[in-house]
């Protein structure tokens, strides 16, 4: 007894795989996955599942970037967004671990408001996307530019991807330095805020901890803070 779908597939015979435009198929696959997961983030009602769907949504977007030949952006998406969601997931687990699988209930008014806002944003984005004439059809002969090397050169202040004869464009050295200084300040601030405050009488948990590891020096937090800062300078 054969399953009817399998029988139908056998009747059609082998698919003409050579004629399928795999780029389009994969694009549709990744796009559908991204959209479905994005909807699932909204519809899910507990934090860890939401974070998981968000991870899948962002990973599918990274797949779209790889498909477009933007390997650097794709890897960045994986590293920063998907990796960053990891921390979100950890917080979700820590917040809900007391009473497992709590469902977050949203008020009906909030749902309507959020739906309106989302629909408005989607309408604006769609309209502006379709207004650009060049985006309506696939660009002919467009070749994926080499990703990493020009970006690296531009970060050093040299643009190798400029048009011939055009005005000389500036590199990304200044923005890069500003961003890295900003991150350094943030790291120092975080280390300052998170440092252990000295107490007159140690809490019981600290006594227990020092009993477990008597070799730990008192300035451990300061040491790890400076290590954190030096880690931020790479």
């Amino acid at each position: 007894m054969m399953h009817p779908v399998a029988a139908a597939m056998l009747a059609v015979g082998p698919l003409p795989l050579g004629q399928v435009n795999w780029h389009t198929v994969l694009f549709l696959l990744f796009a559908a996955a991204a959209c479905a997961c994005a909807v699932a983030v909204v519809l899910a009602d507990h934090v860890v599942r939401m974070a998981l769907y968000l991870v899948f949504c962002l990973a599918a977007t990274a797949g779209l970037f790889f498909l477009a030949g933007a390997e650097f952006v794709g890897a960045m998406q994986l590293m920063i967004y998907v990796g960053g969601t990891l921390v979100l997931l950890v917080f979700g687990v820590m917040l809900t671990a007391q009473a497992p699988f709590v469902a977050l209930k949203t008020a009906a008014g909030d749902k309507v408001l959020a739906g309106l806002l989302g629909a408005a944003l989607l309408a604006v984005l769609l309209q502006s996307a379709f207004r650009v004439e060049a985006w309506r059809r696939p660009a002919a002969g467009a070749e994926a530019a080499p990703a990493a090397t020009p970006i690296g050169m531009a970060l050093l202040g040299v643009r190798v991807d400029g048009d011939e004869g055009g005005p000389v464009r500036s590199g990304y050295l200044l923005p890069f330095e500003i961003v890295s200084m900003h991150l350094l300040v943030v790291l120092v601030g975080a280390a300052y805020l998170a440092r252990a405050k000295r107490r007159k009488s140690p809490r019981p948990i600290e006594v227990a901890a020092s009993a477990v590891s008597p070799a730990e020096p008192r300035h451990q937090s300061r040491g790890s803070a400076s290590a954190l800062v030096s880690g931020g300078q790479r």
């Binding site: 860890v48 990891l86 990703a147």
Partner: peptide, 23 residues
């Protein structure tokens, strides 16, 4: 083009499975 970066980025995602399993 960004092979090293890709491998390190993807390798860091393995922990997702571990956290999900634990939770």
């Amino acid at each position: 083009n960004v092979g090293v970066f890709f491998v390190v980025a993807v390798l860091g995602l393995e922990v997702f499975g571990v956290i999900l399993a634990g939770y």
